[in-house]
Design a protein around this nucleic acid. Structure first.
Lengths: 141, 141
DNA sequence: ATTGGTGCAAAGGATTTGCAGTCTA
DNA sequence: TAGACTGCAAATCCTTTGCACCAAT
């Protein structure tokens, strides 16, 4: 678990005012590289006692993502995941279980891009490699 | 606009029973290669008169996607897009406007994968290249 | 006739919002 | 103290569901 002072420093580096709740949330996120949904963060933060409200968790995660502290991963149509690992890498997404895992970056190459859409600049690239459980026989609807 | 008989054939090829509403929806989708959300499809289908209900649009889009007629694109946390172009290709997503556009496939290479997660098999790969509007100055929250 | 499809409205789940109270700088 | 942040509950938005009616084979 990242210590409190490191978290405060991290917040400041990213221009985010540090508050009790933001520190709690950041400590959960940066405990290790992981993918958590807002609800999962809420559950972890409030595991011991109720320290942070749902609204604040959502607000903080959105803020952290905008500030580049964490990365938003859109893979599951039902919820957004936040990744505390912002280094270049991509993801496996298990469509059966909804689990996300890391995909080493070396295996994906994006060549020179010919033309971005009119009047736009590159922001980021998300690669989602979808996998299914092997055992499950494909459901024949 | 794809004619009615072609749509009926397409449905049959994919093992989807053809009905009035599904034909209406498919005609919208396959009018041209495009990315539409459920609500956009609903609006287009019912442009003239109310022919199809919201539930049926959602059901049909889900069915078409499962059957491989169209492709589901998860890029915008707020809604799912459906792409009538199922050939190998990826997407640009403008985070400012929420617009999706095609990214020619040649520019992305996925090398051999070392290890998929335990007990899983490959399903598909989605690459979302996020872009921002050039003019807009980055908002400094 | 049977089975599957549709429509409606209500339910559901994730995320956001409004506003009063509280904390940080 | 002023401005920013938080908490709570209500509000929103997209999507799914339950169930009665209708259509396709």
């Amino acid at each position: 678990m990242m210590n409190k002072q490191s978290v405060i420093d991290l917040l400041q580096e990213h221009g985010v005012q540090s508050t009790q709740q933001r520190i709690e949330i950041a400590q959960i996120l940066f405990a290790k590289p992981q993918h958590l949904s807002a609800d999962q963060v809420l559950a972890k933060v409030n595991h011991k006692r109720n320290i942070v409200s749902k609204a604040t968790v959502y607000n903080s995660l959105g803020l952290f993502a905008r500030k580049g502290m964490i990365r938003e991963i859109i893979a599951d149509p039902n919820r957004v995941f936040y990744d505390s690992n912002t280094s270049e890498h991509h993801h496996f997404f298990n469509v059966d279980t909804g689990e996300l895992s890391d995909l080493p970056n070396e295996n994906i190459t994006v060549n020179e891009l010919p033309g971005l859409p009119e009047g736009t600049v590159a922001d980021s690239i998300d690669v989602i490699f979808k996998v299914r459980n092997k055992a499950e026989k494909p459901s024949v609807f």
